[in-house]
Design a protein around this nucleic acid. Structure first.
Lengths: 218, 218
DNA sequence: GCCAGCCTACCGTGCGGTAGGGAGATTTTG
DNA sequence: CAAAATCTCCCTACCGCACGGTAGGCTGGC
């Protein structure tokens, strides 16, 4: 795992996000796992919790026996890590297009909320695992995930700081305002049902209405 | 899913909360657990997660061996249930004083946020267990907890519905607005540190500012 | 003839929980 | 008031089981 090779991206704009974890996916070692295996693990982990879920259950969801599952996966924890990595990478990717756009801070807040709620709607089980089972990831890989997670939160934080700095948003601690916005989106995994009466977009718009009316200077 | 069994409490006010789970604490069976045992279990469960935590660990925190612990506890799950029950009962109790007061809806929202953030600050480990480990409670007792949890959420929901009904709050779906408020408070367990730079009260006030500016009609 | 992918059979470990007993405090009782 | 019985709380030793993971072999397609 040679990372190194200082990426010398010339820092251009002021609102540049914090340094990305260096290697986007330089063979993190365990990601040659077939998609349906990850899907099965996601389902079982989200329903029963990582520690309560057994490899036998996951195998049975796939219609095979446990030892066959070990042809595709080295360790149980690899599955958990793969789910986490997939979720956070995809969420960062989608949010980045909002973050690095030319929108106003208000539009970016609304956009980030839309991305997040849509994400929860599309990947509910995966988000459940990502948000409720992070304690179970151990060792080196955990650091990697924490970095990415911080990176995501920093994007939201910067959007709000930017709005505060340019006088669009009222003067409240940006860290707390960021937590408020993140909370609305993240907490969604506990209740939002894309089959329910409201679409992700409708929920996100309501959240954006509340958050922006709350934050914008009159 | 209609209600049933009309409780003959003469409905007095419009804002009466939904029916309480019938028995406040009619021998729920397992709550003669000493407080320090619950405290130790809370700590271990919150740090490692219910399924990953072992009875041996909890016993060692108490300075005893596992079989001795079974003199105070019948089953591991009893500990989890006791923690859940303690948390939700106390939270309902504190929030109820706000809910049943004569405050305006806006003041009630601010009050509920204060109660919740203060609660998170005082019982962080317990709240972590309550919010992150509810999947592990099984059987009859789980229903009881769900009822209480719904009851708590209904209080917030009604506060907001009341505000919407009397024209204080803007016309957004009250259920979504309630989720937004609940999210701010509940998500606090993932990041709020009472030893940190901001007190629970300060955070709650910022949340209230955002939520009320967001919700109140101009 | 190789190899991906599945299987049955199995291993070691750590778990929740029990058996059964001992030391000391407390209560009962002659 | 002391002896006896009881209770509280802890211990060492152990059980059965389900888990994560491995050994090693069969089979069918390239």
């Amino acid at each position: 795992m040679p990372k190194t090779a200082t990426k010398r991206t010339p820092s251009k704009a002021a609102a540049r996000p914090p340094a990305l974890p260096d290697k986007p996916e330089t063979g993190s070692g365990a990601l040659q796992v077939r998609a349906d295996v990850i899907a099965a693990a996601t389902k079982v982990f989200s329903e029963r919790g990582y520690h309560a879920a057994s490899m036998t259950e996951i195998a049975n969801v796939l219609g095979i026996r446990k030892p066959s599952l070990y042809h595709h996966v080295r360790k149980k924890e690899d599955l958990l890590f793969a789910i986490h990595e997939q979720m956070i990478d995809e969420l960062i990717d989608e949010t980045m297009t909002v973050f690095s756009s030319s929108m106003s801070p208000s539009e970016k807040v609304a956009g980030a909320l839309r991305v997040a709620m849509s994400f929860v709607g599309r990947h509910r089980d995966g988000v459940t695992v990502f948000l409720a089972e992070h304690r179970a990831v151990t060792g080196q890989r955990w650091n990697e995930l924490v970095l990415k997670r911080d990176f995501y939160e920093q994007m939201v934080h910067r959007i709000i700081s930017e709005g505060t700095a340019q006088g669009t948003f009222i003067d409240v601690p940006p860290s707390v305002a960021a937590k408020a916005v993140l909370a609305m989106a993240n907490w969604g995994y506990t209740w939002f049902d894309p089959e329910g009466p409201l679409t992700a977009e409708e929920v996100a718009d309501t959240f954006a209405t509340i958050a922006l009316r709350g934050l914008e200077v009159r």
